[in-house]
């Protein structure tokens, strides 16, 4: 059948379009410095030299650790605050609930530069400039609104009978949230937690503006600021090696949690 063959060709072209840039980054990362300026479609003589250079030439290990610390703390805080708020917003009827939900949704639309000056002020006031805590704090504006929104959507879907039974047994709201709802929210927490992790891991503007020293930088800033001997001689091999180091684990995570992630994403967009 010709239509089927045509579809398959389109299919392959799509796969090429989606994957080639990353494939080429990997090829470049394994290409020795002398050879990198001859466009290579596969690594002719693969080497780990670029990886060694990026790990020893700068505090890149430290940058990775910074990113892991910031992103993990952001996830824990967002989920903790988010699940408490989601209980109130998803299970309790009170005046102003809808307005509050829409306001939270509105916050997730804020352009980051619109809060930059005010955050700068707070960061300085608390002496957090050039520290990871400044990034944990400022990243909350990116992760908290959608965490609350998606968890509220999931919380609403849980059957009301469970809650009624627990209340009959004299459970306080705290017990209700931590003992009854939390275990049931597992899949939703994994999906939103992962989305929050990715958001914090990739965040660039705050990290660029609130840190100064090499050792306080997170991965995106470190990669953006890798420079060579001059502005015109960027060490592309090193940049691609650094890119591969921080992207491979992320792609792995995303593929492992593929189904839940897509469910979370579509819940975020379709339900909210």
């Amino acid at each position: 059948m010709t239509t089927r063959a045509g579809l398959l060709i389109l299919w392959l072209l799509l796969a090429l379009f989606l994957l080639f840039p990353f494939y080429y980054a990997l090829v470049s990362s394994f290409t020795p410095g002398s050879d990198i300026f001859n466009a290579r479609y596969w690594p002719a003589s693969p080497t780990l030299a670029n990886y060694q250079a990026v790990m020893t030439g700068q505090p890149f290990g430290r940058n990775i650790l910074n990113s892991v610390l910031v992103a993990s703390l952001v996830v824990v805080l967002s989920l903790g605050l988010g699940v408490l708020a989601a209980y109130a917003l998803g299970r309790v009827r009170f005046a102003g609930r809808r307005l509050l939900l829409y306001t939270i949704l509105g916050v997730s639309m804020f352009p980051q530069v619109a809060v930059l000056a005010g955050l700068f002020e707070i960061v300085r006031l608390f002496g957090l400039y050039d520290s990871l805590l400044a990034l944990v704090f400022s990243n909350m504006i990116l992760t908290l609104p959608f965490t609350v929104w998606v968890l509220t959507a999931f919380m609403r879907e849980l059957p009301v009978e469970i809650e009624e039974a627990a209340i009959m047994d004299g459970a306080t709201p705290w017990v209700l949230v931590t003992r009854i709802f939390l275990p049931l929210m597992g899949p939703a927490m994994v999906a939103t937690g992962l989305l929050a992790f990715i958001a914090a891991w990739n965040e660039f503007l705050f990290a660029l503006s609130f840190t100064l020293s090499n050792t306080q930088r997170t991965v995106p800033v470190a990669i953006a600021l890798i420079t060579g001997a001059s502005q015109y001689e960027l060490p592309w091999g090193n940049i691609m090696a650094a890119s591969a180091i921080v992207t491979v684990p992320l792609i792995g995570l995303v593929l492992v949690f593929q189904r839940r992630l897509v469910a979370g994403l579509t819940a975020g967009a379709v339900k909210g």
Binding site: A15, L18, A25, F204, P220, S243, L250, Q258, V262
Partner: peptide
């Protein structure tokens, strides 16, 4: 479907550099 998630999962800074 898995391949479709790859460009999305790559940090923007990394995409820009790539």
């Amino acid at each position: 479907r898995a391949a479709m998630l790859v460009p999305w999962a790559i940090p923007t800074v990394v995409s820009a550099k790539m």
